[in-house]
Design a protein around this nucleic acid. Structure first.
Lengths: 98, 98
DNA sequence: TAGAGTAGTTTATAATATAAACTAGTTTTA
DNA sequence: TAAAACTAGTTTATATTATAAACTACTCTA
């Protein structure tokens, strides 16, 4: 009856990050930190997890002498997000059949 | 930007339970166990958490000599579920206005 | 009356989330 | 120019959560 909710996405911070990356396509660490309100440490860890899952790509460079971490969503990430949303809908709008 | 997702509800099993109780109003332990596919131990723990949060009421009785645990959603539970769904929508359908 | 089954609960452990502490630099400012 | 403050992160320790395994306490059946 209830489909599994991808544990990688069923996390408030990771879901917020993916949600942002879906809409902006590319974002740097500080932007994500501000928009999500997360601490840097937590964000760092969750970005790594999203990367390990293959849901985002992370590029490290420098801008004005400071380190710059840029994140982009991947095809797998988009697919996973769409599947997650689809499954989640089962939980938040019940169909009464059976 | 992103509203907090009630941690009591942001759990696959607890969300499934609440989701069921919203639609059926009353359900026993075995019904919830079958519909969610959870193990009895996990379900027992999560029902206690929902009860402690005041989201459900649990009544224990006997039916045909066997223990019967009946769960019902509370007003607070309904309100929490509605708030959760409302907040969640921010995450799964992005509005581009800042 | 022993074995299997029902309906759970408790407890131990694995997984997750999070903040605090740390690294490695850069930019003031005194 | 040296110390203090700031940027942009990472690592690590801890608290929280989720979960399954083990257990309790019966009942039914052969």
């Amino acid at each position: 009856m209830f489909k599994e909710l991808d544990p990688i996405l069923h996390s408030q911070l990771r879901l917020a990050v993916i949600s942002l990356l879906i809409s902006v396509k590319e974002a740097d660490f500080t932007f994500l930190k501000e928009k999500t309100g997360a601490t840097a440490g937590n964000l760092s860890v969750q970005l790594q997890k999203l990367k390990e899952a293959g849901y985002i790509e992370i590029e490290k460079s420098f801008k004005d002498n400071f380190p710059l971490t840029t994140c982009k969503i991947s095809k797998d990430g988009i697919a996973a997000f769409e599947a997650y949303v689809k499954n989640l809908k089962q939980y938040i709008s019940i169909k009464k059949e059976n």
